[in-house]
Structures are given as structure tokens and as C-alpha cells.
């Protein structure tokens, strides 16, 4: 589904992502973990094209997408959510999803003006369904900026799903959620996977990621230090060191 080959991103002298190679099989929930600043979000930004690649290549379903502009890449079947929610706050909940429907229309290659000025008959039904799935039907005409935090997260997920992606990138979807909400999120991500969408999940919440990921890669200082099933990763000494080592340094720092 997604293949990264020797992917690198340097910011000046800092190697935010350093020769990262990953292969994500279709239908997987693939977890990407690592200490803060290890390059997880940068990786997602490279995959979505929000950042330019320094070196290496990105392939989606065998197709080279490394240099494609973001909107083209996204309409070829990638969708994402952001760590810090980025909804269109001044649009209503319904309008947020309607705008996202464009991504699909683009894949169908209708002309630019037709895409923007015309309404699509199927869109309404799909949006209604997406709202039901997210439990936001009663808030359809509310401004996105006025939603509660948990609702905003659900809407952002629904907006990503509205593009009917093949690959969904979730950047810390559980951040700021309570246990109950995380339980619901766990359920929702599984449903998404079962509907045939491949998921790349970045998460700090270990319990969640260990429970649902089929496979996990661990980053530290931009490099992949381990990859395997959740059990393999947990048993890996390099991973323990990366996490514990960080903890030790910070303890010393405060002492």
C-alpha cells in the first residue's frame, strides 16, 4: 500500500527523518511510535506532501508520489487528521464535510468549475452517513469552531473519511481524550480498518496502539530502531533503551 524508501528530511543540520524505509501492507493498522521529536509527525507531513522530501521516495500502491503536490496526492487516496486539530472553524460541521467531498470529485476528473459550482447528488447522502457514523448529526449546522474538543476530533476524522481514502494517517488521535473516548476511538479505528482502509497510526497512548496495531515501527532521532508486531517491539531492548534512556536523561536533568 505505502512504501517509503530511504526517506530523509533535513532541517538545516537536523536530520528530522533519516533514511527511513517502511512498508505498510494493505488492510493493516500500522503503528508509528517514538519519543517526542523522533520524526513521526514529520514523516506524516512528508507522506502528505506538506513538507518537501530531502531524499528518498514515497510510493502509494506502487505509484511514485514523492513530488506530487499535496492536493493531487490526497485525491489519489490519502487522507489524514492533524495532531493539533485543523478544522475549518468558520464553516459548519456539514460544510466541513462538503468541502472534503471535493477530493472525491477530483478523482472523478470533472472540470474545475463543475466541481466547484455544481452540487453533487450523491454527496448529501454520503455526508449524512458520515455524520451518523461520527454521532454528529444533531450538530450539522453548528460552526466547527463551536464544537467541544472530542466532537472536533470526531469531525476531523469524518472529514478525512469523506475523501474515501485508501490510506488514512492519524496523527495522535487520542491526544487529550479520556478513557471512555479512547475506547470509542479504538472501536472506530477497527471499523475503519475492517472497511478495507489501511491506517497509519501515530500515537503516544501505548495501551491503545499495542491493542490495535497489527505492526509497529519505532523511531528515535529520525531513524527506525525497531519494527515488528506489538509483542516483538515491546520485547526489543533498543526500544526499551530509547524510552528508558530518555527518561533517565530527563531525571538527571531535573536533579
Amino acid at each position: 500500500m505505502l512504501e517509503l524508501q530511504n526517506l530523509s528530511k533535513y532541517f538545516g543540520g537536523v536530520r528530522a527523518v533519516d533514511s527511513l524505509s517502511l512498508k505498510i501492507e494493505p488492510g493493516q493498522i500500522f503503528g508509528l511510535i517514538g519519543p517526542n521529536g523522533s520524526g513521526k509527525s514529520t514523516t506524516v507531513n512528508l507522506i502528505t506532501g506538506l513538507l518537501g522530501v530531502t531524499n528518498g521516495s514515497i510510493r502509494l500502491s506502487g505509484e511514485e508520489i514523492t513530488r506530487l503536490p499535496t492536493h493531487v496526492r490526497l485525491s489519489s487516496g490519502i487522507a489524514r487528521t492533524f495532531q493539533n486539530i485543523r478544522l475549518f472553524g468558520q464553516l459548519t460541521v456539514w460544510q466541513n464535510l462538503w468541502v472534503a467531498e471535493n477530493s472525491r470529485a477530483q478523482r472523478e476528473r470533472t472540470s474545475f468549475l463543475a466541481r466547484w459550482l455544481g452540487g453533487e447528488s450523491g454527496a448529501r447522502a454520503r455526508i449524512t452517513k458520515a455524520l451518523e457514523f461520527s454521532g454528529l448529526s444533531h450538530k450539522a449546522n453548528e460552526l466547527a469552531a463551536n464544537l467541544a474538543f472530542g466532537e472536533q476530533r470526531r469531525l476531523e476524522l469524518a472529514r478525512a473519511m469523506a475523501a474515501e481514502p485508501k490510506l488514512l494517517l492519524l496523527d495522535e488521535p487520542a491526544a487529550g481524550m479520556n478513557a471512555e473516548e479512547i475506547g470509542a476511538l479504538d472501536e472506530r479505528i477497527r471499523q475503519i480498518r475492517d472497511s478495507g482502509i489501511t491506517v497509519l497510526l501515530i500515537e503516544h497512548h501505548m495501551e491503545l496502539i499495542m491493542a490495535i496495531a497489527d505492526r509497529i515501527a519505532v523511531l528515535n532521532f529520525g531513524q527506525k530502531i525497531a519494527e515488528g508486531t506489538p509483542a516483538e517491539v515491546q520485547a526489543n531492548p533498543a526500544v526499551r533503551e530509547a524510552y528508558l534512556g530518555t527518561a533517565e536523561t530527563s531525571t538527571r536533568g531535573t536533579a
Binding site: 492536493h71 472553524g89 471535493n102 477530493s103
Partner: peptide
């Protein structure tokens, strides 16, 4: 106007 990056993400040719 609201979120140029998210706009690109949902497939808008910004």
C-alpha cells in the same frame, strides 16, 4: 482562508 494546509489535505488546489 481558514486553514490553508488542511484545505490542501482535503484535496483543494489551494
Amino acid at each position: 482562508i481558514d486553514q490553508p494546509r488542511a484545505a490542501a489535505i482535503v484535496g483543494i488546489h489551494v
